Amino acid sequence: MAEIENAIIMAAGLGTRMRPLTYKTPKPLIRVAGKPMVESVIEGLHQNGIYDISIVVGYLAKQFNYLGEKYPGVKLINNPYYNQYNNISSLYVARNELKNTVILDGDQLVMNPKLLKREFTHSGYAGAKIDQFTDEWIMHPDQNGKILQCDRSGNDHGWRLYSLSKWQAEDSLRLKGYLEAEFEHAHHYDIYWDDIAMFDYFDEFSLYVMPIAANDIIEIDSVDQLKQVDQRLTKRG
């Protein structure tokens, strides 16, 4: 059994699918039910006693500065590559923060804070079981939850991967080494950081699905979806 020591929140991207809202506001700072999405993530971490939080910023980075004052323990890490490379660059610049760590995106809503509990037994990803086709990454675990393979182009069965993952210190050290190998030496700038563990070096990790319900995490990918979620959560109060 391991215990989460810190969190890394990815918040450097351009948020192109949310334009025109993101022309002036980075996606993680867009409000849903009156609160910036990234603040909902931070408060969920705090509810679970996780206060050492690194936020990787890039696009419109200065707009995040207030978070360090509002939430003690939050620090910002600048990604100077955000406009050139894929999100491998964001975890690369935060690689020294990897230990017993939870990694998640700042532009999602964690509706069930229990997902962020500090105690965990295996490194792995949050996943919800599906019964119809989705083009998201789909994990296929064995009966014990160990991930045997992942489909990059989607599937109609399996477990949909969500961008919330927990890493034990030993796996974090391994992940850090491969980040450096890919970014510094192989110059593979255009891959997702998750490619390292789920595809490129899959056999070097033993990753497990952390089962969640489909509505435990909300990923907002369009302005229309934002309006729908905002209206629903506002009404719910």
Rank of each mutant, 00 (worst) to 15 (best):
A33S: 13
G237T: 15
K117H: 12
L115S: 08
E136C: 10
I218L: 10
I4C: 09
K114P: 07
Q47V: 00
D131K: 14
I88E: 07
F183G: 06
K27I: 06
D131G: 13
S123A: 14
Q143G: 09
S222L: 04
T16P: 00
N87F: 08
G13S: 11
Y178P: 07
Q63Y: 10
P211K: 01
N112M: 06
V93Y: 04
G34S: 08
D107H: 12
V209L: 03
M1P: 12
W167L: 09
D221Q: 15
D194H: 15
Y59G: 00
A2I: 01
I103M: 03
L116H: 02
S222A: 07
D171Q: 12
E3H: 13
K166M: 10
E3T: 01
F64K: 03
L104R: 03
S40Q: 12
N86R: 15
H187S: 14
L98P: 06
I220T: 13
S89I: 06
N155L: 12
T16S: 02
L148A: 10
A197K: 08
V38S: 01
Y178D: 11
D135L: 01
F202L: 13
E5I: 00
S40A: 08
N48M: 10
D195Q: 15
I147C: 04
I103K: 02
F199A: 09
G34N: 10
H157I: 08
D216T: 01
V38K: 03
V110S: 05
G145T: 04
G106V: 05
H188D: 14
Y59H: 02
D216Q: 02
Y189A: 09
Q149V: 03
D156Y: 15
M111Y: 04
D195M: 13
S153K: 15
Y208N: 08
F202W: 13
Y125R: 04
D156R: 15
Y125N: 08
A33H: 09
D171K: 12
L45C: 02
E180C: 11
A214V: 12
F183I: 08
T101P: 05
E204C: 14
G44R: 05
N65T: 02
G15W: 05
R174A: 13
S172H: 09
M1C: 06
L148V: 10
I138G: 03
H185Y: 15
V57G: 00
Y189S: 09
I220N: 09
W193P: 06
V93S: 02
G237P: 14
D190L: 14
R174N: 13
Y125A: 03
F120E: 06
M139C: 13
E182G: 08
M10Y: 08
M210N: 12
G124D: 06
I8G: 04
L233K: 13
Y59A: 00
